[in-house]
Design a protein around this nucleic acid. Structure first.
Lengths: 244, 244
DNA sequence: CGCAATTGTCAAGAAGTTGTCAGGGAAACC
DNA sequence: GGTTTCCCTGACAACTTCTTGACAATTGCG
């Protein structure tokens, strides 16, 4: 019994991207490309969550949202194109539970979807599901892993209570890794924390970020104790002791 | 066990806006659009707090307020488009615990709701309330953070006991930040302290306010000690020591 | 041991963010 | 009404951070 997510997005590339990420995270996914189909599909087989583009041909996202909302508690994550609407949106209503502006970082999308689903499960009564939430749980405000603390609210990292200043990119990588100690992340996964897919970025960029992070948080960067290389795969964050 | 807030507001956009902000703050929220439904809903499932629009179709806010107040201690926050002294008094007379005129700043609404809830929890016992002064302070009257004091009652800021004149906007930003030292605020969050969502406002406006605040409260604005930039995220108010 | 692939490192240019200023215009205040 | 105060924007300067490409060091494997 898996969690079913419906994606309504007319740009096929975007749609495919989203589908991939969600599928990879263990969700069952359907994709539709216009508003009317979205409405029909959502009615025929009610999903656990709907990812809805603002501008859809036929019947736009807002309208779909409104109609669905009349009848159900279905959580909706709205997507919207950048800037022009950005501020406008804040003022206009928006019957969604959350929204993201494009372009977005894939990891962030998946994370928010997870949050929405968790929330809806709590409120909604006997709704279905026992599906194991994939990989990383939603990050709590403060994570501590082997002397390393990542505080989301303060956007600050501490090594044994000594504050360390990280750049935004470094912080994202560290947060992701701290949420799942010992788990090995591929460069590709870490890259997803850094960029939207607006343009191709070399995976080697991740190495440089790791390098810089090591300089900041490791006592001797040459023999790291926290950020370990997993040769041929990627990197992981060590949770404590283990060998040397 | 989450806190349940019922919102009775007939303007759907307003309602949606409120719902969003409350939900985002972790409350469980239901929305109804007319007075009769509000009454029924509040009876069927008594909320921890009711946000009530003055003018509602069917049965207006005053009437709903009166009927509910006959039976319970339910905290009520009244909303109204009007703002004469007269109405305010009538509203409070009828048992509303606080009162806001539209348009309002989202942060302020959330802050007042928090205050009301805190208060109602404390006086959990027998009847009290009645003629509590409106305009509830959103946080303690005086906050001091690393040599910087924000006095809400006097609407005055001090740096090491030297008074500083702030404009209304500057004061709002500083109050919000002083209430949570070290916490990083995004521009978007700070903007919520400044404007209702009547029209879109650029986030860069926040930077200008910060700039002006720094000129007033920092010894050397170029190397601020209180209002720190968190590159890529926003700003925070330093509580004292920590890094440079 | 030696080869090939993978990772570490650095520095410089490109991108993206923030600092700063001054003018137009709205709102508040006599 | 006329002033004064405050806010917002737009432009440009000053910084940070990101990304790349080249080369060195390391690892894994045969």
């Amino acid at each position: 019994m898996s969690t079913y997510v419906l994606v309504a997005e007319d740009d096929r590339k975007q749609a495919e991207l989203i589908r991939r990420y969600l599928a990879h995270d263990g969700y069952e996914v359907s994709v539709v490309h216009d508003g009317r189909t979205a409405l029909g599909e959502a009615t025929r087989r009610p999903p656990d969550l709907l990812v809805l583009d603002w501008m859809l041909p036929g019947l736009d996202g807002l309208e779909v949202c409104r109609r669905l909302r009349g009848a159900s508690e279905l959580p909706i994550l709205m997507l919207t194109a950048r800037s022009t609407e950005d501020d406008l949106l804040r003022g206009l209503d928006l019957g969604a539970d959350d929204y993201m502006t494009k372009p977005f970082r894939p990891r962030e999308l998946v994370a928010r979807i997870r949050t929405l689903l968790r929330r809806s499960r709590h409120t909604a009564g006997p709704a279905t599901v026992a599906a194991v939430p994939p990989a990383a749980p939603e990050s709590p405000a403060v994570l501590t892993v082997g002397g390393l603390t990542v505080n989301a609210a303060q956007h600050q990292v501490f090594v044994h209570d000594r504050p360390v200043n990280c750049t935004p990119g470094e912080f994202r990588i560290l947060s992701a890794m701290a949420a799942s100690p010992e788990r090995v992340f591929t460069r590709s996964q870490l890259l997803d924390c850094l960029t939207d897919h607006g343009r191709p970025v070399s995976e080697r960029t991740v190495d440089v970020h790791i390098l810089n992070l090591r300089k900041k948080i490791e006592t001797s960067p040459r023999r790291p104790q926290h950020l370990l290389t997993v040769h041929g795969i990627g990197y992981k964050l060590a949770s404590g002791d283990h060998g040397t």
